[in-house]
Amino acid sequence: MDRNRRSELLARANSSELTAMAEAFLSRRSIAEEIQVVNPPEVGMVMMQVREPVCKERFHLGEVVVTRAEVAVAGVRGWAMRSGTDRETTLAAALLDACAEHDVELAAEVQALCERTADRIAADERREWEELRATAVSFEELD
C-alpha cells in the first residue's frame, strides 16, 4: 500500500479506530517523546473544482469542510486531511501516517487498519449496488 492510498484510507477510517490506535502509539515513550506538531489540526475548506463535460471547462461547485493536520515523529512528517470538523481524529490520522513512515512495526498496524477500512468501504459499495440494482428498469429488446 503506497503512501497516497494510505492517506485516502486514513481519511475515511472510523474515528474511534483511529483515535484508539493513536492513543496506543502515544503510550510508547519512543513516540510520545518524539512527536512534534508541525501544523496543528485546523478546520477549513477546500474549494471543489469540477470539470464539466460540455465545454470541458472548470467551475467552482462549492466548498467542502475539512480538517487538516501535520505532525512529525522524530522528524518524519505525517499528514492528514479528513472531511468534517473533528480535530482530534485528524490529528490521530496524521500521527498514524507519521508513525507508519517512521517505524516498520507500527507501519504494519496502520496497514492493517487501512486494510480493514478498505474492506469495509468495498463491502458497503457492494451492498449499496445490490440494493440499487433492483431499481433498474429493464426493457427486453427484440433482436
Binding site: E42, V43, G44, M45, V46, M47, M48, Q49, V50, R51, E52, P53, R58, E63, V64, V65, V66, R68, M81, E128, L132, T135, F139, E141
Partner: peptide
Amino acid sequence: LPRLAYTTPVDVDDLTVLRRIVPAFRN
C-alpha cells in the same frame, strides 16, 4: 474559515451513480 486548498479538477465522469435516468432514450 480559511480556504485550505482547491481540489484537483474533478472530472464529472468519475461520478458513481445512485440514480440515473435518461429521458432521451428508452434503452
